[in-house]
Design a protein around this nucleic acid. Structure first.
Length: 562
DNA sequence: GCCGTTTTCGGCCCGACTGTTTTCAGTCG
């Protein structure tokens, strides 16, 4: 079977890591990493492209295209095999240690024969590293510390976990003295570390930061880094006159920053976190806010969620940035559970919560009975709930819509018969079982559900649980095509545990004219507030108000669904 | 390795901080 784009990207990335350990120049290494990024973002399988077509993609040239073709035709890349033979496999893991980069890995390997984390730890504890130039007591201690962190670290944080870290840190800071930047501000579904811009002086802030830190990694007048729990928090200090350029710098992404600096260079300027400087005249420009800096560069302000260097900079220059959906546009929730299945809220509770949130409608979507674990609704229970909803709707306020989250069974049939589904306002269909099916079977299974005339929304389309369970194998390009063809909406599940589908697929779906439903999948009251996470993902997927089903009024929604 | 309305060769973002340095390399974001 042809390799997936993800597998190809992993291979190219791994090649970059191996070259880095060998001591290849950084630009060549970066070229591999950049190519891997591009490959990940491709919608169509690269297997269908020729070398010439591939080399038209940004960051992929003749050489890497040839390697991908070789991989398709022979199942391997000769150069990659050679690299793997000459470099011990455990060395790549050493790159993941804080404070250990490619130069250090290379030296450890060549000078001490260290090829994995265990050997490095033994050498550091035995004080054997000190004979190496640039290594002393502190460096050894740092390595022992970062190995400990590495061992009990659990990857990136979910957004709700990131918020906990932010709350811990900002609880001791003066209100108004800080702004959270980084990937958190860009709305990413997971966050590596926390970046904060502070307009208060380091002399006031550093003691406060130390007081909440489990470890002070480094402390300076321009930047301080601390560890809170297992998480790194970086704080940059600035004054209000330079706030815009500092916030822009710290918000990133890295590729976005590099591209922006290239543009500044073309304009004869140097761009950094302190502003823009004209190289000829030496004239400095400072920016108190990001908007002013964008305008200086001749472009429209780019929302943080779009700053990934995937075309937004060109749009900003041509004044064609999309107008993105906002939290205030959301008029209802299209996936919530009640005590009818595994939720804790009664039908009337749902209506009350909807009213409190200012929603026009809430779609009640309990599980269908086929999902034994959740104690779902059978045909009889569906009719009983329909009646209950009807009664609740006699009170004015948030309108409850009758729906279901019906199982997509292993063979693509649904967990309830059409005779039941046809009485419901809106039907969400989701996969909950048989997650290990082979890709083609899973894909056809979902497509067959999309072709059921009663199915309106595909729930959590990849089934991923962030940090716990990967997305199941599915050909998303075919799913998106089928959704477009059948007029089925796709869910952006706003639970911070899911955020499914991800932003890359949202953008692909949007480009095919597929509508998205941003839904919380709420099981209890607090879950309704997760809507904001879903809106951020929609924005990262370039969605405007009209791309989102639940920005419609109740009447528009029902008309659209018919 | 990629890229190019000044370039097919010679560039490739820019700065903070640490440790072990007597002027800087390495790492990080």
């Amino acid at each position: 079977m042809a390799l997936s784009n993800r597998q190809i990207a992993e291979t190219i990335r791994h090649m970059g890591q191996l070259l880095e350990i060998l001591g290849e120049e950084s630009f060549k290494v970066r070229a591999y990493y950049r190519a891997a990024e591009t490959i990940l973002r491709q919608e169509k399988p690269l297997a269908e492209k020729t070398a010439a077509e591939m080399s038209r993609l940004p960051g992929i040239g003749k050489n890497i295209a040839a390697k991908i073709v070789e991989l398709h035709e022979t199942g391997r890349i000769r150069e990659y095999e050679n690299l793997r033979e000459s470099i011990p496999a455990g060395l790549v893991e050493l790159l993941e240690l804080d404070g250990v980069g490619p130069k250090t890995v290379h030296k450890l390997w060549k000078k001490f024969g260290i090829v994995n984390v265990d050997e490095l730890e033994a050498a550091a504890r035995g004080h054997r590293l000190r004979s190496m130039r640039g290594f002393g007591e502190k460096k050894e201690a740092e390595i022992i510390r970062s190995i400990a962190h590495h061992r009990h670290r659990s990857g990136r944080m979910r957004r709700d976990q990131a918020e906990q870290v932010i709350d811990t840190v900002t609880a001791v800071l003066p209100p108004g003295s800080y702004t959270v930047a980084g990937s958190f501000r860009r709305g990413k579904s997971t966050v590596g570390d926390i970046d904060i811009v502070s307009v208060a002086s380091p002399f006031t802030m550093n003691p406060l930061l130390s007081s909440v830190a489990d470890e002070v990694i480094d402390e300076g007048e321009r930047r301080t880094s601390i560890r809170v729990g297992a998480r790194r928090v970086d704080v940059r200090f600035t004054d209000r006159a330079h706030f815009g350029s500092m916030l822009m710098y710290l918000t990133g992404s890295k590729l976005f920053n590099i591209h922006l600096r290239n543009i500044a260079q073309e304009q004869g300027c140097k761009l950094n976190e302190y502003g823009i400087e004209h190289l000829n005249t030496g004239e400095p420009f400072t920016f108190a806010d990001e908007e002013a800096m964008f305008h200086h560069l001749g472009m429209d302000p780019i929302p943080p969620e779009l700053r990934e260097d995937t075309g937004e900079i060109e749009c900003a220059q041509q004044h064609t940035l999309p107008s993105l959906v906002e939290p205030g546009h959301i008029r209802g929730d299209l996936h919530v559970h009640s005590t009818g299945s595994d939720g804790v809220l009664g039908i009337r509770d749902l209506a009350r919560i909807g009213e409190q949130r200012g929603y026009e409608y809430i779609l009640v979507t309990d599980h269908s009975a086929s999902l034994g674990v959740a104690g779902g609704l059978d045909a009889h229970a569906v009719r009983r709930q329909l009646h209950e909803i009807e009664v609740a709707n006699r009170d004015r306020g948030c309108h409850l819509l009758a729906g279901i989250e019906v199982d997509i069974l292993g063979d693509g049939r649904l967990g309830l018969p059409d005779s039941v589904l046809q009485d419901l306002d809106i039907v969400v269909a989701s996969v909950h079982s048989g997650l290990k099916q082979e890709q083609d079977i899973m894909t056809r299974r979902i497509i067959s559900a999309l072709h059921n005339e009663h199915v309106d929304i595909l729930g959590h389309p990849t089934g991923r649980l962030l940090g716990r369970r990967p997305a199941f194998e599915v050909d998303m390009a075919r799913i998106i095509e089928a959704a477009a063809e059948t007029g089925t909406a796709m869910e952006i599940n706003a639970s911070p545990h899911r955020l499914d589908i991800d932003d890359i697929h949202v953008r692909q779906a949007k480009e095919h004219g597929v509508r998205m439903a941003i839904s919380t999948d709420a099981h209890r009251k607090d879950d309704f507030a997760n809507m904001r996470y879903g809106v951020a993902i929609a924005r990262r997927g370039w969605c405007g108000r009209n791309d989102i089903l639940n920005t419609k009024s109740l009447n528009e929604l029902l008309e659209f669904i018919q």
